[in-house]
Design a protein around this nucleic acid. Structure first.
Length: 500
RNA sequence: UGCCCGGUAGCUCAGCGGUAGAGCAGGUGACUGUUAAUCACUUGGUCGCUGGUUCGAUCCCAGCCCGGGCAGCCA
């Protein structure tokens, strides 16, 4: 028996039979160790199902999805989350603890030692003929998950148990893979991963309401002479907040390491109650020196396509479940997006297009105002039927750091809109000209004193640079078809809800 | 935060001004290489909370709480 797993690429049939690739055998119970000798390493269900030959000895561990009793034995469906599928186990009535096995309900945890054999029944290639079934943790009738389907709304209330359901197992496996693909994309292209701060002293980042971070006694805060709260006595000797964006800090690093990205948690204290807003979410923010808006839009498109292609390839089984039970159009839509270039239209063109569409909108389309959700959806879902990059927005409706175009009316903003979700990426070329940036700040009534270090980036060796933010959960929603952001976050934080 | 819809068994829902039903889950039994197994029987409810109208409210009304959808804010 091998003591350590090796990458599958190194495997041979002989090693596979010997339980190769198994994880460390690590159970809690002393009797379990006694029963199985403590030497046998467990095999993930995923690997057992992918076997190319029977195995004389196998140890599998997981949770019972369902039990079906036959005349002289029971079928157990064992799931360990390594993949969507469960492993069928045959537990013979001759087993010494068969009475206990017949009391196994959905949700119970077991360790099973036996032989991996070709299944006699239809529907699966392999099954385990159990020689020992160790009941590790029983689950009684109050276990909330049933074999039958549950609504996502119900499962949300049992967030600690929902990863044991098929749907959420798939969601969180894909979430993991998507995070991996993000790092891979940037690392392969020479981007440096930067950890921007989560606690920030800037309350004027211009991206929504902030959560305050403090150790002051809210019942009795220290006061200054004038009666205001004395933040000089707070932990950081100033007011601090949770970050709403790592962009400004990423710009500093891009203006040194050339190509950087951040990938971390982001917090917005907006009282948003929609299917696509969370108070705590993860955002990816690449920032590139010597890069204009074109290069930025190119990267955004390449990035989105890379992520779709990666998940399509590595999470095929999970995506099949979404295609079957969540969104029938998912796979055609993902392939459609991969197959063609994103449509690019300027804000001005988009407004013209919407005006001429003849479509009746609840909110009128007018130059100089933000595109409403219904407008964005019309563009991406009705008109182009694919992702759309809208660029060059009027300067009045965008933040101070976006680069002013030569027309003096628009800034180099860009939003990527996708069907079903709307805005998934927001970005821009940044204003690199010190004097123009200072004028922008004046126009936005920002105090330059609060942005000393940010202005320094333009004072010393300034360069054109660009970047964008991708909402990680929104991307996950797009690739899974899951319609509510609360269902792609392990333990979602939304207004009025921070349970678990 | 605004508008709309909903809250009845563990889950999904039906119902109704006269004190409550189905399917699934659970239990018991039968049958069976089953696979959301099947069949029979069966346990299970402060009808979200508070107040009001009424002889009587799960049903009608008001307020509140919770959930969902849409909108705004944005990623």
């Amino acid at each position: 028996m091998r003591r350590r797993g090796m990458p599958p690429a190194c495997s041979s049939p002989a090693l596979l039979q010997a339980g190769h690739g198994a994880v460390q055998f690590c159970f809690g119970g002393a009797n379990a160790t006694a029963m199985f000798g403590g030497m046998l390493k467990s095999t993930p269900v995923k690997e057992a199902l992918a076997s190319t030959a029977p195995r004389d000895v196998i140890l599998v561990q997981g949770w019972v999805r369902t039990r079906r009793d036959a005349k002289t034995f029971s079928f157990l469906e064992l799931n360990d989350g390594s993949c969507l599928k469960s492993l069928q186990v045959i537990a013979d009535a001759a087993l010494p603890n068969y009475a206990d096995i017949q009391r196994l309900n959905t949700g119970a945890s077991v360790a099973i030692r036996g032989k991996l054999v070709a299944s006699q029944g239809q529907g699966q290639k392999w099954e385990v003929k159990a020689e020992a079934v160790d009941v590790i943790g029983a689950a009684d009738a109050t276990y909330p998950l049933q074999k039958k389907g549950h609504t996502p709304e119900f499962l949300r209330e049992i967030a600690h148990l929902r990863p044991r359901s098929n749907l959420f197992g798939c969601v969180f496996r894909v979430r993991s893979r998507l995070a991996y693909a993000i790092h891979q994309f940037f690392q392969d292209r020479g981007f440096v991963y930067v950890h921007t701060p989560i606690v920030t002293g800037s309350d004027c980042e211009g991206a929504g309401e902030l959560f305050r971070v403090t150790t002051l006694d809210l019942q009795n805060p220290p006061k200054r002479e004038d009666g205001a709260i004395d933040y000089a006595k707070d932990f950081f000797a100033r007011p601090t907040y949770l970050t709403v964006s790592g962009q400004l800090e990423a710009e500093a690093f891009a203006c040194a390491l050339s190509k950087v990205y951040t990938f971390g948690p982001t917090f917005r204290a907006e009282n948003s109650n929609t299917s696509r807003h969370a108070s705590e979410f993860w955002m990816i923010e690449p920032e590139m020196a010597f890069c204009d808006l074109q290069g930025n839009m190119d990267l955004a498109e390449e990035f989105v396509k890379h992520l779709i292609r990666d998940v399509r390839m590595h999470c095929a089984e999970d995506l099949e479940l979404f295609a079957k039970f969540v969104d029938k159009e998912l796979l055609p839509r993902l392939d459609f997006v991969l197959d063609r270039p994103f449509q690019r239209v300027s804000y001005t063109e988009a407004v013209e297009l919407l005006t001429k569409s003849g479509h009746q909108f609840e909110y009128p389309v007018a130059y100089g105002t933000n595109l409403q959700s219904e407008h964005e959806r019309y563009l991406t879902e009705q008109h182009f039927k694919c992702p759309v990059t809208v660029y060059n927005y009027p300067k009045e409706i965008k933040p101070f750091y976006m680069r002013l175009n030569d027309d003096d009316r628009t800034v180099t903003a860009m939003d990527v809109l996708v069907p079903g979700i709307g805005e998934i990426i927001g970005g821009s070329q940044r204003e690199e000209r010190l004097d123009v940036l200072q004028k922008n700040m004046e126009r936005h009534q920002l105090d330059p004193k609060d942005y000393g270090w940010y202005l320094d980036l333009r004072r010393y060796g300034t360069v054109p640079h660009s970047g964008f933010g991708l909402g990680f959960e929104r991307m996950l929603m797009f690739v899974t078809g899951v319609a509510n952001i609360r269902d792609v976050v392990p333990f979602a934080r939304t207004p009025g809800n921070a349970a678990f």
